[in-house]
Design a protein around this nucleic acid. Sequence first.
DNA 1: CTCTTTCTCGACTGTCACACTCGGGAAATA
DNA 2: TATTTCCCGAGTGTGACAGTCGAGAAAGAG
Lengths: 144, 144
Amino acid sequence: MLVTKKNQYALRAVFELAKHQGKGPIKISHIAEVQAIPERFLEVILGQLKKSGFVQSKRGYQGGYLLVVPASELSVGDLMRFLQRNAPTEACMAPVPESSCPFRGDCVFFPMWRRVREAIYDVYDQTSIQDLLDDDRGGKGYPL
Amino acid sequence: MLVTKKNQYALRAVFELAKHQGKGPIKISHIAEVQAIPERFLEVILGQLKKSGFVQSKRGYQGGYLLVVPASELSVGDLMRFLQRNAPTEACMAPVPESSCPFRGDCVFFPMWRRVREAIYDVYDQTSIQDLLDDDRGGKGYPL
DNA sequence: CTCTTTCTCGACTGTCACACTCGGGAAATA
DNA sequence: TATTTCCCGAGTGTGACAGTCGAGAAAGAG
């Protein structure tokens, strides 16, 4: 439960990149404005996102960011897995590593936490960026 | 993603109460020891849990806590809904209230967050405390 | 070559929830 | 009356989150 603002910003930024896919690089400042994300913070976020390989950048005049994977082949799950890669721990939704759990992974709740995690990622994996683009008709996708 | 330690403690405490259901009150100090929960912290947690109506307490000699709902009629979902009642917001898994979202609930990701939340609670609702008791055979349920 | 544009990098900071702790008090029973 | 056990409010340390900032480097325009 709870996805950090940073991760939500990352998803919105990728969504914005997807909207302009094939039309050349798009500037950080534009994404920041249209997606209501603090610009300097977005710099940090996109810098990290580059390491995923899903986006690329180009410097200088007419530079910016590009989505280098087709929107239909990129799922929210792909992104979330990358964004969560060094999160506290994925093992049991706990804020401690499994190794320091007093039950050593033999906790009664363990199987349930696994099912929850799987249920979440089922939804993420079933949602491609293209799906979001398709849903985005009628004023959606932009702040008021 | 991520359930606080406090909430995990609450679930474990209820599980421990369920184990002794029908055998009179069980002391905080016992639950704390056997479930590896800081005792003074557990006082706070159980104090709040009382407000749910699922547990009751008895003071003085031979006092302690009791689960007043049958384990088969109490689901993890019931507990989580109570525990999350005044969390940041349930609206879109974001750490901000829906009212201050720049998209005013018209965000492209909104439906996905809803599906994720539903998927999580499906698992929670399908898991009764009795199920956990049934699974708890062979050393499970206690720390090493 | 120089100027502008745009990304790049590391360091830094404020805030807040989380995860506790603590001291004393109030029932209930022995 | 003494003991047990819960009850209550207040207080604290830490770390992640959510940003900010200054300076610099590549890429092209003129």
